[in-house]
């Protein structure tokens, strides 16, 4: 019953805040260096005719890891719309077949939204490999050989993502990375130029101006986080007092 209450509360808050924020100016957010750098990478990609590589990992959509993949898809959609006019379209890799199909669909939708349907190439959305290491091995040549100016890794990865960041490092390509997997987060913290920590992965849309629902999401997350903190502190206090 607690789960249902949390979901319903989040749903109501998200709907209400999205509606209220429709005509409000964008909220003031703390700076995240990784996303500031991504802004610059988007501009650079359009200007110098290079491309962005977006990797969505291998999180199956029927598993609990699907959330990070969906956040990556939202980022892919945003980046496709912004860079569709450049000479080299963004290229996306995934390690799950269903995610690869969604990647192609998202790329196509991004081109349509930018009124550039003719520029869409189906081969820019790829299944790089169906197992963790084959996924990494398939993504490495994309970073190395396809004139990539920035590497955006957002989704569910394992420690094997270090192989992709190493390929990027050798090609002097900056990497921005965020994941929901704890060991992979530690790896990205050490290996990526711009790591996203924890929920920053899900906040990217709000920072890049993807719409009022993304800004509302951040507020809902903050409300729930404060509620959890108060709940934990209250529980600890009651335990200390011997009430529970």
């Amino acid at each position: 019953m607690v789960e249902l209450s949390v979901i319903l509360l989040s749903l109501i808050l998200l709907l209400a805040l999205t509606f209220l924020r429709r005509k409000s100016p964008p909220p003031t957010l703390r700076p995240i260096p990784a996303l500031t750098r991504l802004y610059r990478a988007i501009g650079l990609s359009v200007e110098d005719g290079s491309r962005l590589h977006v990797s969505l990992g291998r999180g199956g959509l029927l598993s609990g890891r699907g959330g990070a993949s969906l956040a990556g898809l939202a980022m892919l959609r945003y980046l496709t719309e912004r860079t569709s006019a450049s000479d080299k379209p963004p290229v996306a890799t995934a390690g799950d077949p269903a995610l690869a199909v969604l990647t192609q669909d998202t790329l196509k939708a991004g081109y349509e939204a930018a009124n550039a349907e003719d520029l869409y190439q189906p081969t820019t959305g790829r299944l790089s490999g169906p197992t963790p290491f084959s996924f990494a091995a398939g993504a490495m040549p994309v970073v190395r050989d396809e004139n990539v100016s920035a590497n955006v890794l957002m989704g569910d990865f394992g420690p094997e993502i270090a192989l992709v960041t190493e390929a990027a490092e050798r090609s002097d390509v900056p990497t921005l990375g965020g994941t929901d997997d704890l060991p992979a987060q530690a790896v990205l913290y050490a290996a990526a130029q711009e790591p996203l920590i924890g929920e920053e992965l899900f906040a990217a849309g709000a920072y890049l101006g993807a719409g009022p629902s993304h800004a509302a999401s951040l507020i809902v997350q903050d409300i729930l986080r404060w509620a959890l903190i108060l709940f934990l502190l209250g529980g600890a206090a009651l335990k200390m007092l011997g009430v529970i």
Binding site: G67, A68, D180, L182, G198, V220
Partner: peptide
């Protein structure tokens, strides 16, 4: 970190 990720995944799903 996991609590943050879970809240982010929840709002993304919604």
């Amino acid at each position: 970190i996991l609590i943050g990720v879970a809240l982010g995944a929840l709002t993304t799903g919604l």
